[in-house]
Design a binder for these strands. Sequence first.
DNA 1: ATAAAAGTTAAAGTTAACTTTATGGTTTAA
DNA 2: TTAAACCATAAAGTTAACTTTAACTTTTAT
Lengths: 154, 154
Amino acid sequence: MIYTVGEMAKKLGVAASTLRYYDKEGLLPLVERSSSGIRMFRDEDYEWLLVISCLKKTGMSLKNIKEFIYLVMEGDSTIDKRLSLFIKQKEAMEKRMAELQETLDMLDFKCWYYRVAKEAGTTDILRDMPIEDIPEEYREIKYKLQNVDLQNDK
Amino acid sequence: MIYTVGEMAKKLGVAASTLRYYDKEGLLPLVERSSSGIRMFRDEDYEWLLVISCLKKTGMSLKNIKEFIYLVMEGDSTIDKRLSLFIKQKEAMEKRMAELQETLDMLDFKCWYYRVAKEAGTTDILRDMPIEDIPEEYREIKYKLQNVDLQNDK
DNA sequence: ATAAAAGTTAAAGTTAACTTTATGGTTTAA
DNA sequence: TTAAACCATAAAGTTAACTTTAACTTTTAT
């Protein structure tokens, strides 16, 4: 199968201008052209674009994705570099996900907070709530949100 | 405790210009000024900034964070809106985290892929590897990366 | 008393990742 | 065969979230 830029864009759910932009930025050195200069995307190119999309989701910049693509094109001599690249990216993502989990805990706490406030009709009830009345799972995150770094205060 | 913009920036690990920018954008309507116009951050403002930082981590835009801040300032009449806002944000985050988990699975697969390639000295071995030789946990993600949408091909 | 450090604002600059526009060539369906 | 729908490029515009710069004032330390 061969696709024009518009067809491939539709298949991927992105704008055609995005694919042209990627091409201009050197992310698609493998896409061939017809004699009249029209891009002809192949299934192989589609697979590449899926990889690009995945790497983008890991938070990798187009600049780094481009570097990776050139490593692949250089052949087997760059396997080691590619492995380190993925290990590094995986570690970065694991760190990010841990952070996000903490943020999610905060949102959980806020949802509980406003459900209680809604029932009471005011947030006052929460301002004076003794620690024992706060469900245990929210105590730590509440503390974090109020942590005024006592050690560092003069 | 009272902090100048530079001290607060240090405490939060951000640039002072960032705090001035937030102020300009209306995210810090609560920070008072000295008679000569210098910002005087209080512990209460620090707590606000922690909340802003958390909301930013959930992917909320400064524009939406500002809206939230104004909801809080409007008082108890907006509790319901704030609850919906957090529920919505939590759902969005849960969705994002599920996506990230898939992306992490992809990175896992890629790490395995390049560890095998490294040992063999070439990626060729992986191109022809029968499905049975691929560890089971990677088969699904490998399929996803090659999914050429056969149904939709003419 | 004065120099350095830090504060102020307004306005312009930066960056990434696109998108839009202007201008023109190519394909396709009636 | 011609209009509509698509393709092409180059260059300018967009957006968010800052950062930098310029010009100036205030605070702090010696």
